[in-house]
Amino acid sequence: MIFCHNKHHHVVPCLHCHPHSYIRMVQHLIERCLLLHMNQQQCVMALAQFASIRPCITITVWRELEKENRDFFRAYFRAVSSYRPFMGRYIQRKPSFQRKKQYWK
């Protein structure tokens, strides 16, 4: 748990209290979206819905990642666009950003 100076208690980093940690968390979530072969729009929607990240923050972090990793994103978009039409028809996967519970028997 992260404790803020203004006596707020957050389980995840707070944008106002810990901006660097918050941006790193958004970056990590974007990387998870990339592993699920999402484009920017899908990533923005997923983070807004499942992690309550404002779209403007996701877009800003995404753009900075693109600036820093131009070659990676060029190759990523080329690879994703080449097989995306085939995947879309057969795989309907919802992204999961929560940890799965371990069930012991």
Rank of each mutant, 00 (worst) to 15 (best):
R70A: 12
K67Y: 03
H9S: 14
H9V: 15
E68L: 12
I59T: 08
V61P: 00
K67I: 04
L65V: 07
Q27M: 07
P19Q: 11
P55R: 03
R78A: 10
L35A: 15
R54T: 00
R89F: 09
V26R: 05
I23E: 08
Y103H: 14
D71Q: 14
I57W: 05
D71S: 15
S82M: 14
M1T: 09
I2F: 10
K105R: 15
K94F: 07
Q42S: 09
C14R: 10
R74E: 14
V12S: 11
Y83P: 00
M38S: 05
D71M: 13
L47Y: 10
E64K: 07
Q92V: 04
C17M: 10
R24E: 13
C14Q: 11
Q49N: 08
K67R: 01
R32T: 02
L29P: 00
E31L: 15
Q98R: 07
H18N: 13
E66D: 05
R32A: 09
R93P: 01
R32V: 01
N69G: 10
Q41G: 12
Y22E: 14
R63K: 10
S81Y: 00
V61I: 08
H9T: 13
A51V: 01
S52D: 06
Q41H: 07
C43Q: 05
S96M: 09
K67E: 12
W62C: 00
I57F: 03
M87V: 08
F97R: 10
P19H: 08
E64V: 04
R32Y: 07
S96T: 02
S96D: 12
C33Y: 04
F72D: 06
F50S: 13
V26D: 03
Q27R: 08
I57D: 12
P95T: 02
C4I: 02
N69W: 06
F50V: 02
H9Q: 15
I23W: 01
H9F: 06
P19A: 10
R93D: 14
K94W: 06
C56P: 04
H20T: 14
K105I: 12
T60A: 12
A46E: 05
G88S: 06
P13I: 09
C17F: 04
I2C: 08
R63V: 02
G88H: 03
R89H: 11
Q40W: 00
M25F: 04
L65M: 15
L29S: 03
G88K: 06
H8M: 14
F50I: 03
Q42E: 11
H18L: 11
Q27S: 13
I59D: 03
E68F: 05
H8E: 15
H10Q: 07
L34T: 01
C14W: 01
M45A: 10
H28L: 15
R24Y: 03
D71L: 15
H8K: 15
L34M: 10
F3E: 08
N39G: 11
Y90N: 14
Y22K: 15
H18S: 11
V11E: 14
V11M: 12
I57V: 12
I91Q: 07
F72S: 07
C43P: 08
H28I: 10
H20M: 13
V44L: 06
I57K: 10
L65R: 01
A75T: 10
